[in-house]
């Protein structure tokens, strides 16, 4: 039941965003189509059911967005410096990190966030191991890389996705 409701809410939100109006006929058509689609296609989609909706999780979501935006800005400043410097300072390598997250959506959001933050790029996910291409490798050790790359986002994502 929760799956159907969340799918319906997501679909109707996108419908209203794309139409950018809340006229009665738009809402009626949109909710009809969203109800139909979520009833037909959402028999066992457990993607949305892993999200928590406790107040703590909402605070964690806001904090995650703040951390993510600041990391994005820092990533682009460091990339600009790296690209425009004449000597191209590089020290690349692939390191292995571990995540504590269990849910699929949480791992996907973590991988996307790692891709968009300074100098790191998710190359492969294999269960709880993430293989990351790092422009400036500080150490090949697994625990130190985990502390450096993952734990900043992980503490919020653990609260969001359980």
């Amino acid at each position: 039941m929760k799956n159907y409701a969340l799918m319906f809410l997501t679909l109707i939100t996108f419908w209203v965003l794309l139409n950018s109006s809340v006229d009665p006929e738009v809402l009626v058509i949109g909710s009809g189509v969203s109800l139909l689609v979520s009833l037909i296609f959402c028999a066992k989609c457990d993607v949305f059911s892993e999200i928590n909706f406790t107040p703590k999780a909402i605070v964690a979501t806001v904090m995650f967005i703040v951390t993510f935006v600041s990391a994005l800005v820092r990533a682009n400043l460091s990339i600009t410096k790296r690209v425009l410097s004449p000597s191209l300072p590089l020290n690349p390598g692939i390191v292995q990190v571990k995540t504590k997250l269990k849910s699929k959506v949480g791992r996907m959001v973590l991988a996307n966030a790692i891709t968009l933050t300074p100098g790191t790029f998710t190359l492969e996910i294999d269960g709880e191991n993430l293989y990351i291409h790092w422009v400036d490798v500080k150490s090949g050790d697994q625990e130190e890389s985990t502390k450096e790359i993952v734990s900043g986002f992980e503490k919020y994502l653990e609260l969001m996705y359980g």
């Binding site: 990339i79 590089l90 100098g119």
Partner: peptide
């Protein structure tokens, strides 16, 4: 400018999304 594929895709993804 970047020397190999993996560094190119890092710069391409981050800067173009931003």
């Amino acid at each position: 400018r970047m020397p190999d594929f993996y560094n190119r895709i890092q710069v391409g993804t981050k800067a173009s999304t931003f």
